[in-house]
Design a binder for these strands. Structure first.
Ligand SMILES: [Mn+2]
Ligand SMILES: [Mn+2]
Ligand SMILES: [Mn+2]
Ligand SMILES: [Mn+2]
Lengths: 252, 252
DNA sequence: CTCCAAAGTTAGATAAATCTAACTATCATA
DNA sequence: TATGATAGTTAGATTTATCTAACTTTGGAG
């Protein structure tokens, strides 16, 4: 009876969630606009989604997600984000192409592959053999290949960096700039090193996946520094200023 | 008039190409079996594909691809292969899951992203900071994360390997085992170092994408060593023994 | 308060991809 | 050569997602 959602249905849920984040209310017309379809198409799909208990929609009124619909919409949105991050940050695909591809691939990826992709993207940025520099070398490889001389020079420079890093690890000394999450600039990535908070607040952060070793990316800081929006393992999180101050990160 | 193919149509073309490679003739029933649909569904789709000039099919007779259909089928098949290789060899997704995901994602990836993925997979195996060892470390990271001690030990071992490699590059000395393509074992990957052949034969190999620096994977060697089937940038190539003997590769 | 433009709905059509049921052709072998 | 099992086709139904045309509701300007 309760068959899985079609790709199209997933896109409607995703669009509604997106619009809820953008504006305070969601109208049929907004959905039509975001998805590039006509009004009756939306009315008709809202009918189907309503019957499945995923959206709430009284005739002529605003549209909203049901609690179950919101859960599913967040899952779709996360798949989208994970794929987009990989395409953009690892492969270096143009942002708009990455966006388009992610919104098609999000319906085709299995949960197993998704989690691998999350881990891989994290690994590339956290692993001492990967990281920014390595990805930059990939971008170069894309445009003009690798000559032996460039290769040798890169390796020499890289060995130097690694030796510094391994000494730092062995002596326990920190080489990176350590800041709290609230100080991480939008667009920057950081690795969680510790969580200061006590009791419930600490637990809440850990539950959200903010644990030492995790990669976080700052998305947006609201005008007064509250709330801050971050991305962790593809999840979009909104943290209060007090929470963000409890999380130590080292910039990557 | 000539709109693009639907995902479903692509799957039919891919299935027909697959069956042509497996057996000598393709029957309606085989396609139905491969795609898990009933016979009339296939008849009906062959009708549509026939009208577009992509398949040749006389009533009650065998099915074949038209030249244009074969070109498209090869493109689909290549997308499938590129994605599967990435999922399996880089992310370490289980072969069957990789297969299923690839066959869904192949319809969602743009040409730009596909070429990036080809280059990335190649880069991971060819780049001195990537390679087998690095991917193995990723698999470990997936299962149990990275402890500081493991990290330090890995880096030390890795630096040693890199130093050996950089000396080899600088002195021009070869450290890898160099063989000709015909000696590469099935499942093994190699990097093309040189092409011996002269004139037309050499040109043919270069045209197929077999140029120095390229990653090739041996797929199958026929009983008498002729032909050999290899994969280059996602393309499936069949080489005669004489051709394979002209290509030098270093095992990876 | 009235009225009209914009937003939304209803009705009905179309295209794609599938199915079942019923019919037909092919071909091996008795 | 006759014939039945297997393969294939035709016809007609269903589901999903879309559209246009025509109708209805809502809410703001005058
Ligand atoms: Mn989508
Ligand atoms: Mn999306
Ligand atoms: Mn497919
Ligand atoms: Mn496929």
């Amino acid at each position: 009876m309760k068959k899985g959602l079609t790709a199209t249905m997933e896109d409607y849920l995703e669009a509604i969630l997106f619009l809820k984040r953008e504006k305070r209310v969601v109208r049929v017309k907004d959905i039509a606009c975001v998805l590039g379809v006509r009004l009756p198409t939306v009315t008709s799909m809202l009918q189907s989604l309503g019957e499945r208990g995923l959206v709430e929609h009284e005739k002529y009124d605003y549209v909203d997600l049901s609690p179950e619909g919101e859960v599913l919409a967040r899952e779709v949105s996360r798949r989208h984000q994970v794929i987009k991050d990989f395409l953009e940050d690892v492969l270096g695909v143009e942002p708009q192409k990455a966006e388009e591809d992610a919104c098609r691939m999000e319906h085709a990826i299995s949960p197993e592959t998704l989690e691998r992709l999350v881990k891989f993207t994290e690994f590339v940025f956290l692993c001492p053999r990967g990281g920014r520099q390595w990805i930059e070398q990939f971008q170069q490889f894309c445009s003009r290949g690798l000559s032996k001389e460039e290769c040798a020079a890169h390796i020499r420079a890289f060995i130097e960096g690694l030796e510094k890093k391994v000494r730092a690890i062995e002596t326990g000394e920190e080489v990176r700039k350590v800041v709290t999450l609230k100080d991480l600039e939008p667009g920057k990535k950081g690795k969680v090193t510790a969580i200061k908070g006590k009791g419930g607040l600490r637990k809440r952060l850990l539950d959200m996946g903010i644990v030492p070793g995790t990669l976080v990316e700052m998305e947006r800081v609201a005008p007064l520094g509250d709330p801050v929006e971050v991305r962790v393992k593809g999840y979009h999180l909104s943290l209060r200023k007090e929470e963000a101050e409890e999380v130590y990160v080292e910039e990557i």
